[in-house]
Design a protein around this nucleic acid. Structure first.
Lengths: 148, 148
DNA sequence: GTCAATGCAAACTTTTTGCAACTCC
DNA sequence: GGAGTTGCAAAAAGTTTGCATTGAC
């Protein structure tokens, strides 16, 4: 699903929150990068380029926190590094992260639906399908045999 | 599968590595806590109690790193906090972590086997079932409705 | 005696927080 | 004008690293 920066801006407006250059830029970054895996640092970087002004990292974190509370974005931990930002509205998907080469495969949530239902039935646990990733080895690494 | 501290010590010996009080204690902690979710801090703490002497955190990290390289343990990220240590030999299981209360449910890898096979068939991705966790809401939090 | 392992302290990364200054509505 | 935002700086948590010293074998 496509999300425009304007949609994000509208969310802020609807909540009576204020719209600053920094926030506009961050909205833009999130909307533009809807299919990428943006780190907070990446958001920070890109936002500064768009805003053509310095933005404080803490501003980025605070703005992303606002968006998380509004349910607009998630942050996901793909590995040991920084967290990754994700649009909640973007098509829900899970991540398969290769422990060897670090590549990430997106799996549509639909492909996992039955499995998650099973977990719910057995454990009463409702999976948030876009949070966290499954580690393992991708096809290439497994075949090449160059495993750590 | 049960792993004794002696087994871990044997691994070190076999590699020609040295055996110090700190390492003995850490082996003990890992072996004893084979079914728990030990953080590095937890290992540190427990090791000091066993060794009855101060152990530096960096020693713990370095020792755990050695064990990771030897393939004896993994470390897993359950969420935003510290990483968790896991015996590679211990029974493989997946983690369901509640985003609300932080509780963790262990799911035996067997329960997920079919699902992982499907992922392998569809995406060529081999899941390492003990790495990373699935986020979501546990039964209690979902029912109580006290969600973030 | 040699080399691995430790302790210590300092650096590092990512993220959070307190507070004064600012600015959007 | 006032509440929401920002920047700055400092702190926090978790982890890593350099270096001299220690201690296992």
């Amino acid at each position: 699903m496509q999300v425009a920066a304007d949609d994000l801006i509208a969310v802020l407006r609807a909540k009576g929150l204020r719209l600053t250059a920094a926030r506009r830029a961050i909205c833009q970054v999130i909307a533009d990068g809807h299919d990428e895996h943006l780190t907070s640092a990446g958001v920070h970087d890109a936002a500064q380029k768009i805003a053509k002004q310095a933005i404080n990292p803490s501003t980025v974190y605070r703005t992303l926190e606002v968006f998380e509370q509004l349910g607009v974005v998630h942050h996901v931990h793909l590995g040991h590094g920084p967290g990754v930002i994700h649009l909640s509205e973007s098509e829900s998907h899970h991540h398969l992260t290769c422990d060897n080469c670090g590549s990430t495969i997106d799996v549509p949530a639909g492909a996992l639906g039955g499995f998650f239902e099973e977990l719910h039935a057995s454990y009463g646990f409702t999976v948030n399908p876009s949070h966290f990733a499954l580690g393992g080895y991708c096809r290439d690494c497994e075949h090449s045999g160059n495993l750590g």
